[in-house]
Amino acid sequence: MSLILDHVSHWYSRDTAYEVKALDDVELTIGDGEFIGLIGHTGSGKSTLIQHLNGLLKADEGNIYYNGQDIYDKDFDLRELRTQVGMVFQYPEHQLFEETVFKDVCFGPKNQGLPEREMTLRAYEALKNVGLPEKCFEISPFALSGGQKRRAAIAGVLAMKPAVLILDEPTAGLDPRGRDEILDLIEEMHRHYGNTVILVSHSMEDVAKYVDRIIVMDGGRVRFDDAPREVFRHYRELEEIGLAAPQVTYFLHELSRRGIPVDTDATTVEEARDAILNYFGRAGRR
């Protein structure tokens, strides 16, 4: 699997007084099995970008290639692309609609035209993967708790076995427990199936903890695209575009400003702890 964006630009209300260039000459290559964090403040173009990846929005300029095929080609099957690039929107539980949880999860595979047996198996597997207990399968999705509803909605996308899973703020509005459960679940799935995951998030702490690569959007352009520790080195520039680094990054820079030369690249609590212990351990032995 590979997704290549080649000089992609997109305008809203083009050629009117309200014209906005939402994507500005974006070049990206998304490879197989990557776990990517997509960050940017509101209006930076992240949502516009992800909607291009499964053809919900069409680029005004530039091309997008899925496995080497131009998705704007006349013969390209966009329907197939949408089952391959699965999208979990914000507050996906608002899209639950069926009579039972199980039927709701079957909706995607059914539209893929899968045989009954395969569809049932997939729905079952997806529901198991998101950790919903079997007693929930045959009840109305509206009888579930908030966190359970979200998991049911995610299962509906997983059941299509997408090669790329895009999640737009999957933890918005959840409490810390619900947030950890959802993110751990995504990570577990990623490890087990090796699918590509793109996580859109506002939480730098979450992004630092889970992803291998961060793409930072600003004003419709890709501003940074690198490993978390590389991206968060630019914490001052991130602040200028309305973002921030994880708290521990600020702390390590503060220490180094105060003349304690710790390794300032840590982005998680564990890495920061080790960096500090490492420094003081060495200092202690001196």
């Binding site: 521990v248 702390f251 609590v269 702890r273």
Partner: peptide, 20 residues
């Protein structure tokens, strides 16, 4: 109680547990 702790508080807690 399944609540978060600010990252700095958590870091201090971990360092303390490691003997600092």
């Amino acid at each position: 109680h399944r609540l978060d702790v600010p990252q700095i508080t958590l870091l201090a807690h971990e360092l303390k547990q490691a003997g600092m």
